[in-house]
Amino acid sequence: MKFITIDKKDWARGIEKSRETYKLFGPVKDKSGFLIKSLENDTLPDMEYHDTIMSAKSVLFPQTEKILETTLDESKEDHHIMKRADTDYSPRAVVGIRPYDAKAIELVKLNFDTDDYRDPYFCDAYEATTFVGLAVNKPGPFDFSTSAGSGPFCEDGLDILLADLDDKFLAKVLTGKGDAYISACGFETSADEKESLALFDILKKEAQNNIVSHIDTDKLKEKTILELHEAPFWEDVAFSCINCGTCTYVCPTCWCFDIQDETKRKSSTRIRNWDTCMSPLFTRHATGHNPRAAKTQRVRQRFMHKLKYFYDKYDQGIMCVGCGRCVKNCPVNIDIREVCNILNSYEKQE
């Protein structure tokens, strides 16, 4: 395992240098709060941030993405034939991604990269991206990542894990991609492996001990889908829901999308947009029939997908990494931690 020490005085220079090879993304402060954005010109990632409102999934899976295009001009030989849009898949790096967000991208990948189908847009972006994680030294009060299969120092999905040591970063280089990025930055000061491992261990334990929020998922697997589906608590859970898409859009693991064709004069593009299972339109059939016409059905779907269907299908834990964004941003404070615990402890009354 390779460890690199980066003096914070050298940080900006290294990041700037990496721009020669990489297009950079990272946390920046905006008027709404912190967001993950493309870092243009000399903008550096803000490594002092706590949480970003939106996750890093948009780097690989933008809210609106042009996927195909064609011309409607019949004098052209290839008119009406959809071709892949000209998207830039040159190397990119997300600097300062939180470990739970990187883990979430691994969960999204389970859907987009399967034996049956490989989504070229997501997969090409994934391959182009290097994930430079920033460990969470001081987890916030809504962070329940340790009980959701991730954690403040979780390495899943990361190429590099950085630990903030006040005047310097200690970088744990986890993959070849990570090694290439560190070289592109010109960071070369090796740190002793044994000492660094021990230091990471201490910091990790300290951070994990600071996590105050937990969920129980141990019994979800043994519950039957129908029993949970027909449980009486859904009306209460869903009552306050206003059916906006906030929870699904801020969620780092929600992957649903909608395809739209847009034309202007002789050009036509096919775009895909994030979609949300909270919207009645999400399931409305062309006939007008809607299998999830009622709010309660839609709220149930979101939680069942995250906490049961996904768990059963992939056997990789729940489809939630415990970032706490939906808890914090839900306008009516529907709390996935509470819902998860209700599901986990539910026993059907005979």
């Binding site: 933008p62 809210q63 739209q260």
Partner: peptide, 30 residues
């Protein structure tokens, strides 16, 4: 996310114009 619309007590149309798909009045992207 339409939280503004959905939190609004006077936005109670059965189908909002942005959700209408035939005809579609407004694009759904960003």
């Amino acid at each position: 996310c339409y939280a503004c619309r959905n939190a609004c007590p006077i936005c109670y149309c059965p189908t909002c114009f942005v959700d209408e798909s035939g005809p579609q009045w407004v694009g759904k992207g960003q």
